[in-house]
Design a protein around this nucleic acid. Structure first.
Lengths: 139, 139
DNA sequence: GTAATCCCTATAGCGACTAGAGGTTCAAGA
DNA sequence: TCTTGAACCTCTAGTCGCTATAGGGATTAC
């Protein structure tokens, strides 16, 4: 019925020290302990950790996850804030994609500017790394 | 003819403590000092810092930049390694874009799953955050 | 000469873990 | 029941690329 920290780790893919870290940060409740001071978890802790892990996999920062957990503990609140967090994360991801696409373009140009068979003094790649002026815009 | 650290900062957009940090990390040479122990830079330091900054803006990690600097100091070496670094960075950026696009898709689905007008107990967004099973694949 | 601005070193903090040291407890087999 | 070895415990420090702060000294413009 109870899980050790290793059981939780195996079930979720979250490493043991990370689980302890989440507890220290207040994202997991402190579980009961055996007489020998080892943690013992219940199903609800497993659910919470899965939630946590999924949020991290989606790129949510820990303060946002903390807020989600707080909200889920007050079921009568409107879900406006939950939606906001999702929307903000979506926008953040879109912004990062946009930025990375610009980088991709520049790097592709840079990588293509050299045929590989000459000393570094004449290397266009090195020149391109040195010179932002070659880029099409800001990045 | 000489620049103070603040001049260098203004000319490149790199903050003063960051310039000192780059020096400590060996990415910039130790400049000469005034009698009062203040750093004084030359044009070559400015060029190096611009190079450095541009590489960072392109997302290169510091070990890669260090390698590029080492290569540029040995002009007779073939530029194979320079090309490799550019290609690796390009691939890394493409991988990150790929991953973020998957996240974008999942987050868009999650964000769209709620109309906003109900308590969190019934919030599909919160349920979606809790349940990786709803996702189309891994992420 | 003085005031404002710049510069110096050294240390600590950020986020989200991860690694290691040094010791204790648990569970399974003999 | 005893033993062994895996799993657990706490605590500290390290990762990366900066950034902030404290407590001073130097330079420069007026």
């Amino acid at each position: 019925m109870d899980f050790s920290i290793g059981d939780l780790s195996k079930a979720t893919g979250v490493k043991v020290p990370t689980i302890r870290y989440y507890e220290k940060e207040g994202l997991l409740e402190e579980p009961i302990r055996t007489e020998g001071n080892q943690r013992r978890y219940r199903k609800s802790d497993l659910d919470r950790l899965r939630f946590l892990r999924h949020c991290r996999d989606l790129g949510l920062a820990m303060p946002a996850i903390r807020e989600l957990i707080d909200l889920s503990l007050h079921p009568d609140k409107p879900c406006k804030d939950v939606d906001r967090i999702a929307a903000e994360q979506l926008q953040a991801v879109r912004d990062r994609i946009k930025h990375l696409k610009i980088l991709e373009k520049e790097l592709a140009r840079i990588a293509a500017s050299c045929d590989g068979g000459h000393p570094v003094t004449e290397c266009n790649v090195l020149k391109a790394f040195a010179d932002h002026g070659q880029c099409e815009g800001e990045h």
